[in-house]
Write a protein that binds this DNA or RNA. Structure first.
Lengths: 345, 345
DNA sequence: TTGAAAGCGCTAACAA
DNA sequence: TTGTTAGCGCTTTCAA
């Protein structure tokens, strides 16, 4: 019986197809594609040409199953809706993509997610590397991660002794507080945030900077001026309202982040106070909105941290040494929200 | 010979383990886990219990290879660094995660990425579904997508006749422009953005709203008041500067997005103009920063769109009908940046 | 209702 | 340098 010519369902091109057309065995084709040694130059070239013509790309699934690599990297990230995390992931995704790696997003925002995530970790073994994105990992979690035999890279923080890319939060905080001190402020309030998820040293760094900068300048530490709230613009606004209710309100405010700072700014404006004439406000991060709102802040290269972390992952996966880690510099960006004090009354 | 108890290297639990402990064949275990019919209730329960005790989770790779599902969904997204995209992805990721699905991030920001991405599409077959995140897909691309035999869902836009979640951009634009008109403005400028990547109907919708609202109100359409710039706060600021240079500057500005609007606000402030006393400004989106800056805008439920899209994907993959699509309502949010006109001089 | 067997696409010994 | 063989962990006919 003559076989009916059926419309070719778009079956994906596979290794066998490439091998057949190149006139070699699948094993040789695999070696050529994988860049392994011991393949004749002519053979390799032929295989690569055929593969390219067919737009062939290995099946990550099959590859992994057979003991190879998946070409996939997981990013553990608390949430994306904040600029900081999103920009970090954006940079990471770009670098991974350029390296031919796929990014799996593993949101572990709340505590339940987190517990469940680590419980199922072994099953998540389908990645070559895990990047913790501004995600403080506790010791038990770290050990689970390490038992997985995957490359671990931290960005926006550190995890054990794995390669990392981050900034020095205490240094950034010092740049901010010292700026206020240099301007002549001494009653400086701090609006610090304590994210339930953000256990870890980042808050410690920015808080430490405040305490040490004041101490170094010989200014007293007034508990009334030390506000800790949840992260967010609205929370920053509330904190500012509380500060304004003090008998001796501050002449300057050091906020944990730009968004928190903007909340404070809103409260001040609504109270009829002028910035920076009446009160100075400084944030940290240099979120794009800081430039739009003329907010003085400390710039940290966020996207770039993600990019560098992506490079590190690619380097590590290619078998090279990514190095111990990188601490990127931050810098003060003076805009229109800070000035010398003139007294609040 | 008595077998030596070897330290168990943390090998992942597999189906065979579960089957063995449950006293059934791998085939039966697979059926039980997969929720297939024709499995004795007692057997199913036993298998599930064992699996749970062992924290067993199927290997997506092996499952897919064997003809099953991957449990993975790809999100095609232009970039993450803007709040809108990030919030959309955040919602999507949350819903997928709740449904036990993994999210693969496929950034296709620039034109090269895009071409390359679609060229290699067949190889990307390792997902069950693809979600286009505010990503206008052209006809050729859509056809490639459809040849892939995966579920396609669009969020923040539409793709062919695939299920979608979006807003009505023209309606949102009307809410904004009509608000200005109702306040009594007639010289209303538009700062529209034309993202090189954002071919598609979203710009059309917001622009159309402007033209129609003015026409309906009987106000003339002054080409001088129609600015088109690239997306961004700085670009919005530049556009505003140009508008201020006109012989008859506008009394109100309708911006394509909140970030663009904030750029305009900065220019106005720096020019010594008061908002809204001298000039009214309205944006669209209700980015969190709009609340912090007292910007009047039109709210669209961004995160929720992502969440709903995730539900749709889960529904479709479970074999149910996700329905044709959803258009979510937007609403005007009046804050402090709009008021009746008083003339500019 | 259950089990046996085949095979998804690939890689990595081991041979040749 | 290349080919042969044997799985990776799972799902799915087909047979019992």
């Amino acid at each position: 019986m003559i076989p009916v010519v059926s419309a070719p369902t778009e079956r994906a091109v596979n290794l066998a197809d490439v091998a057949r057309l190149a006139g070699v065995s699948p094993a040789t084709a695999s070696r050529a594609l994988g860049g392994h040694p011991h393949v004749a130059a002519a053979t390799r070239e032929r295989v690569l040409r055929i593969a390219d013509e067919l737009s062939y790309v290995v099946s990550p699934d099959a590859s992994r199953l057979a003991g190879g690599r998946t070409g996939r990297v997981a990013a553990l990230v608390p949430h994306l809706s904040r600029w900081y995390f999103a920009a970090l992931v954006d940079g990471l995704a770009g670098a991974l993509r350029a390296a031919g790696l796929d990014l799996l997003l593993h949101p572990v925002g709340d505590a339940d997610d987190r517990v469940e995530y680590f419980r199922r970790l072994p099953a998540r073994r389908a990645v070559d590397a895990i990047v913790t994105v501004a995600f403080p990992v506790d010791d038990a979690e770290r050990e689970r991660l390490e038992g997985l035999d995957v490359t671990v890279v931290a960005v926006g923080g550190q995890v054990g002794s794995h390669p990392f890319v981050t900034i020095d939060d205490e240094a950034a905080g010092r740049q901010a507080v010292d700026h206020l001190i240099h301007l002549g402020h001494s009653r400086i309030a701090m609006i610090e945030t304590l994210d339930p998820e953000q256990r870890g040293d980042q808050p410690a760094g920015r808080r430490l900077a405040y305490e040490r900068a004041l101490a170094d300048a010989g200014h007293p530490l007034d508990p009334d001026l030390d506000c800790t709230v949840e992260w967010g613009g609205e929370e920053g606004a509330d904190a500012m309202a509380r500060l304004l209710g003090l008998r001796h309100p501050p002449t300057a405010v050091y906020a944990h982040s730009d968004e928190v700072a903007l909340g404070a700014v809103r409260t001040l404006r609504r109270a009829g106070l002028r910035i920076p004439a009446d009160v100075s406000v400084i944030g940290i991060d240099d979120d794009p909105l800081a430039a739009l709102t003329d907010l003085t802040t400390v710039h940290q290269p966020v996207r770039e941290q993600g990019t560098l972390a992506g490079h590190m992952v690619a380097t590590a996966l290619s078998g090279s040494d990514p190095g111990p880690g990188i601490v990127l510099p931050t810098r003060l960006v003076v805009r229109g929200s800070t000035a010398p004090p003139r007294g609040l009354r």
